[in-house]
Amino acid sequence: MGNNLSVLICDDSILIRKKLRSTLEKCKCKEILEAVNGDVAVELVKVQNPDLIFMDIVMPEKDGIEALKEIMEFNPDAKVVMASSVGTNDRLKEALGYGAYDFIQKPLSFEAIANIIEKVIKEDKVDV
């Protein structure tokens, strides 16, 4: 699965960032950026405007929902996938209500990530 996607991982967990980066590398994403909290993610989005963002919800400083709101204000077409262990209906509705592209439940599986990448590639036709 070769592609031209630039992807931002926003998660306060080093372990999750490491695992997600490894999965994205296997999917041959072009560029992988990392943010440790919502504040850093918003700043990176404003500068780099990645094609896809994986966003944790429960984080110190700015949480994922707040970051999602700011990112969608900046770029209403941004594709922000909420990745959280808290996949309750309320959280899901809240995230989708603010314009999240998708929601995946932790622990993250390779298949779930690969499916999202495939979906984005198909929609944007950005593959090489």
């Binding site: 262990s85 808290v86 932790k106």
Partner: peptide, 13 residues
């Protein structure tokens, strides 16, 4: 931390 967070997340669900 992530293990506890994951478990608590599933508990919340």
């Amino acid at each position: 931390s992530e293990f506890l967070n994951l478990h608590n997340g599933i508990y919340l669900v």
